[in-house]
């Protein structure tokens, strides 16, 4: 049974001005020069290697990490590797303001948890609940919450029914067997 609770270290993907990055496209996540790769184990090493400021992400990421990004994450092409590379590194889940449409489907179908959050504080240290890279966080998929040190710091949009069903089954192929 896939886990519905994650505990791990946060990565907040910010630009040089300290703002959360929007529109990270599939070429920044997994560049088209590596498209011939089809084995999931080999994908991880190239994650974000075309994203300014995060070219060393793959070396530094640890299994269980949680990745926070801005709006329209994964826009661009239909490549599955842009989801597979995070699985390959053992990243537990991605939390974004929104996703590119094809990326969203690819993640859901492969049973990789992507979560959506509307309001979250990444930049204002004067407000409570600011999330920054390195924070140890707990995410509860059922309750759709993010906690730090027992305090709630964010509310996620709940999984849709299809997303939940596919996630619990493992992937779309497993899920389809139950249909």
């Amino acid at each position: 049974m896939p886990s519905t609770k994650f505990k791990g270290r946060a990565w907040v993907i910010l630009d040089e001005q300290g703002e959360i990055i929007d529109d990270i496209d599939t070429d920044m996540i997994f560049h088209n020069s590596y498209l011939a790769i089809t084995e999931i184990e080999k994908m991880g090493q190239y994650t974000f290697d075309n994203l300014e400021g995060y070219k060393d992400f793959a070396q530094k990421a640890k299994p269980g990490d949680l990745v926070f990004v801005g709006a329209n994450f994964g826009s661009g092409s239909s490549r599955q590797q842009a989801v597979g590379c995070f699985r390959s590194l053992g990243v537990s889940c991605i939390v974004a303001n929104s996703y590119g449409a094809i990326y969203k489907r690819n993640a859901i179908n492969s049973g990789f948890p992507i979560l959506t959050i509307k309001d979250i504080n990444f930049t204002d240290p004067n407000e409570p609940g600011m999330i920054k890279s390195g924070d140890e966080l707990e995410i509860d998929l059922e309750k759709a919450t993010i906690h730090r040190d027992g305090l709630q710091v964010g509310t996620l949009e709940p999984f849709s029914k299809v997303q939940k069903d596919i996630y619990m089954a493992g992937d779309i192929f497993e899920y389809a067997k139950e249909l």
């Binding site: 661009g76 092409s77 239909s78 490549r79 599955q80 989801v83 094809i102 489907r105 690819n106 179908n109 492969s110 992937d171 779309i172 192929f173 389809a176």
Partner: peptide
């Protein structure tokens, strides 16, 4: 299909959608 510009089908009033390769493998079968 696996082409991210399949929504070109809107030109003839049809619904086209680019999808990833697992998605299309599933559609081939289902």
């Amino acid at each position: 299909g696996t082409d991210s510009h399949l929504n070109i089908m809107g030109a003839v009033g049809a619904f086209g959608q680019g999808m990833g390769d697992q998605d299309i493998a599933f559609a081939f079968k289902a």
